[in-house]
Simulated assay, not measured.
Amino acid sequence: MGERVGFSAPGNGERTAGAELAELVQRVGAGDEAAFSRLYDAVSGAVFGLAVRVMRDRAQAEEVAQEALVDVWRRAARYSPERGNVMAWVLMITHRRAVDRLRSESAADEREERAGALDRQRPFDSVTESVLANLERERVRGCLSALTGLQRESIVLAYFNGYTYAEVAEVLRAPAGTVKTRIRDGLIRLRDCLGVGR
């Protein structure tokens, strides 16, 4: 995801690129996965670059970038050219995702401090917590099992074991581009299976 792929022709080419991106977003909004793949390739470098600048952590930036691109897929049907060009819209989504992640981490730190103080006052209901965690794990396992083998292995290595795309590609002996595509497609299928954003 670190490499920059996209439309970069100057002058008149920029208008053409903008029109192409707008057309791709329209097709993505209609559920065209091939159009999403092209849009992904065109904007992913800029998305990752912005995520790195805001997060200042490559691993977290990769996660933020993936989440932002899934948001682009989900929101494509609601994109309106009157609000700005496609790249600005995509980068706005990315920036919001990154800022939300930073705020969430800050809030999580504060919650942990408060929870630590409460734990000294109140007993913890470990049975309820354990049951809920097991139910959620089973749900995720069920959705993972619906993926193709390469999608499942790529996502498990990247998101559960913390491997980079390059490391996943090396472990699976597959081209990095194939691994990135499988992860992207797998995340879309997982999102749909888990009902995220519905």
Rank of each mutant, 00 (worst) to 15 (best):
Ala51Val: 08
Glu23Gln: 12
Val25Lys: 00
Glu14Phe: 02
Asn85Thr: 02
Gln60Cys: 09
Arg27Ala: 14
Glu113Ser: 12
Gly13Arg: 02
Ala35Thr: 15
Pro81Asp: 00
Arg78Ile: 05
Arg75Tyr: 01
Leu50Gln: 03
Ser37His: 06
Glu67Ser: 01
Met87Phe: 04
Gly13Ile: 07
Phe124Cys: 12
Gly2Thr: 09
Arg103Lys: 11
Glu3Ala: 09
Gly18Arg: 11
Arg4Ile: 15
Arg122Leu: 15
Glu136Trp: 10
Ala46Asp: 12
Glu63Leu: 10
Val72Glu: 02
Ala61Arg: 00
Asp71Trp: 01
Arg139Glu: 04
Met55Ala: 01
Ala107Ser: 15
Ala133Ser: 14
Glu138Asp: 11
Arg58Ile: 08
Val140Cys: 04
Trp89Thr: 01
Arg58Asn: 04
Glu105Thr: 11
Ala76Glu: 02
Ala88Asn: 05
Ala117Trp: 09
Gly18Glu: 11
Ala133Leu: 14
Ala88Ser: 09
Ala51Asn: 00
Leu118His: 13
Arg122Gln: 11
Phe7Thr: 01
Val127Tyr: 04
Thr16Phe: 13
Arg74Gly: 06
Glu33Asn: 04
Ala65Ile: 04
Arg74Val: 04
Leu135Ile: 06
Ala77His: 14
Tyr40Ala: 10
Glu82Pro: 03
Gly29Phe: 02
Val28Lys: 06
Asp125Ala: 14
Gly29Ile: 10
Ser126Cys: 11
Asp119Cys: 13
Arg4His: 08
Val127Glu: 07
Arg101Cys: 07
Val127Gly: 12
Val43Phe: 10
Arg53Glu: 13
Glu129His: 14
Arg120Tyr: 03
Ala115Tyr: 11
Ser37Glu: 12
Arg53Gln: 07
Arg58Gln: 12
Trp73Gly: 02
Ala46Leu: 12
Arg58Glu: 13
Glu129Lys: 11
Leu102Pro: 00
Ser37Tyr: 14
Ile93Gly: 00
Glu14Lys: 05
Ala108Glu: 01
Val70Glu: 07
Phe124Trp: 04
Asp32Leu: 01
Arg122Ile: 15
Ala59Pro: 00
Arg83Cys: 03
Gly11Gln: 06
Glu20Tyr: 10
Val70Asp: 09
Gly142Asp: 11
Leu69Met: 15
Val64Met: 02
Val90Met: 06
Arg120Asp: 07
Val86Trp: 00
Arg137Phe: 13
Val99Gln: 06
Ala65Arg: 03
Gln26Ala: 15
Asn85His: 12
Gly18Asn: 13
Phe36Val: 00
Phe36Ser: 00
Glu112Ile: 08
Ala51Lys: 08
Glu136Thr: 09
Ser80Asn: 15
Val52Ile: 13
Arg139Val: 08
Asn12Leu: 14
Glu14Gly: 04
Glu20Ala: 15
Val43Ser: 00
Arg74Lys: 11
Val127Ser: 14
Arg15Leu: 08
Ser104His: 07
Ala22Leu: 08
Asn134Ser: 15
Asp57Gly: 10
Phe124Gly: 09
Ala68Pro: 08
Met92Glu: 03
Val86Gln: 03
Arg120Leu: 14
Ala61Ile: 05
Arg97Tyr: 02
Asn12Cys: 14
